[in-house]
Design a protein around this nucleic acid. Sequence first.
DNA 1: TTGAAAGCGTTACCAT
DNA 2: ATGGTAACGCTTTCAA
Lengths: 320, 320
Amino acid sequence: MAAISRVLSGSPTARSIPAATQERIFAAAQQLNYRPNLLARSLRQGRSTSVGVIIPEISEGYATPILAGIEETLSAAGYILVMLTHHHRAEVLARAQQIFAERAVDAIIAVDTALPFVGPIPTVTVSCPDSRPNVTNIVLNHDRAAELALHHLYALGHREIAIIKGQPFSSETEVRWNAIERAAACFGIALRPNQVVQLEEDLPTSEPGYRATRKLLDQARDFSALFAFNDVSAIGAVMALHDAGLRVPNDVSVLGFDDIAFAGVHRPALTTIRQPLHEMGVLAATTVLKQLGGIPDLRSGTQRMIVEPELIVRSSTLKR
Amino acid sequence: MAAISRVLSGSPTARSIPAATQERIFAAAQQLNYRPNLLARSLRQGRSTSVGVIIPEISEGYATPILAGIEETLSAAGYILVMLTHHHRAEVLARAQQIFAERAVDAIIAVDTALPFVGPIPTVTVSCPDSRPNVTNIVLNHDRAAELALHHLYALGHREIAIIKGQPFSSETEVRWNAIERAAACFGIALRPNQVVQLEEDLPTSEPGYRATRKLLDQARDFSALFAFNDVSAIGAVMALHDAGLRVPNDVSVLGFDDIAFAGVHRPALTTIRQPLHEMGVLAATTVLKQLGGIPDLRSGTQRMIVEPELIVRSSTLKR
DNA sequence: TTGAAAGCGTTACCAT
DNA sequence: ATGGTAACGCTTTCAA
């Protein structure tokens, strides 16, 4: 039994077993159609070749490419995902910790989620700006993103730029806003309070963007450009502007964020700041795998991996 | 140990344990912050409170609501998903069987996937028309869908209707096409071979729909309506028609399928045949849960659960 | 180089 | 009503 275990699980101690015996073992396993019981192995080793993934919801546009990137990478390495959604509810987040512990996940990837816990296992976050000890954070270069965005609009002649901030519960809202403020200061753009609105509802649709834009139009109509928190809300903004008799991009230039799949298909095609969502998922997964396979020392210490945004110009964003 | 196991796992045999003892056990568990080890339980019981889910890919529009419905329902019942994607590759599908067996999933849900295997565990398929023994199939009422679609177009005066069939590898392509043929016969609509094209590329984007429509336009321009295999390809079709100088819906009425989230946001807003994707995910999951909890007899026998489509009229599909 | 045996943390079968 | 104990199928240590 010992020899069989060592050979079939590819243990380094198998090197001291003669080739002939190994052959016999492989042959027998093949003939008997032997499959090791992963549950027994997991129980014994205390690990499960699985990775916990937590994300607010399985939503269109944003979550999909990240999850796809994570799934591809992990399943190619023989890991499965223990995927949980929390819908921004604190008690579900707390339960997630239990579930991950029960299932003995070997690592955790948190997407767009402020983890209330950090365990002794490798932990990687995606788009969670608040860094915690022993966690690797994969974050977008928000300063660069804001600079790309405002430079684009500024270069086209826009000076009165409205902003739609993210929902209060969204983990990136604050850092993004701060970056926008810094970039605006750089370009000498004034962000007037009545030209700033915030997404409110917890819906992954364009509805919150529509409502925020309605509110914006009620309190200010003197902006010539609008920078939305994400593409989904930018689409809602375009609808609201259109309903208010304003043309996009002729009257108002709308700039989105994320570059979701539908951004290029939407009419008017959405100019946007691209986040490499799929790549971020892949990066999160490969980072986890590296930590799982590598030297334990690599796990410790807070690390930041910065991902670069890109300006995608689609509908010609005309100068006013 | 025995008493503790019985009480904490809610075994029916725990009824013969006096309330006082049960209290003591609960109190101690609480105080010691005891969490049962799921791996050990799974090893012993041969089940893992997990459900295998296999789907071609984590794609926008189609997969997302189904997966969300499955995830919600299963995780509310304490199950986790073992989610695999196969990208229409046969060898990956075969490996999936291995992985599900290794992980000792308690049931399997296959979405839009022709399973090459049926095990002894409850198995539910979503949108897989070919029925196999001991599998519950959740399928759309395709005849009704085709009837809704063609009646809608017919009533608007359309007689020359082009069709975009699904990819050859898509599990619903054939059954959908057969239903369309029957409905067309009913209404006395002739489906001319040069007005029928098929999606080819294995991409979850609107690209295949665009290409198919280009091909269609090369071989026929005498159609006044176009019925696409799904919304994603309908969007591609609208782009291709537009690029060819045709207006939608003025020159050509385009009818989609699925009613994905962006169908109502797209301009022109997409008229479409709605599949209740989210509900289908929920239904698949509840069916699995019922079979897992219920009498084993319920598992046997092939069952079909028919889901009804709905016509969603958005852009006014004008009579030619 | 190989084998025996001790667990991993449960559950379930028997006794009491 | 309770408790002892043998599995479940593997890995790993220790001896041979």
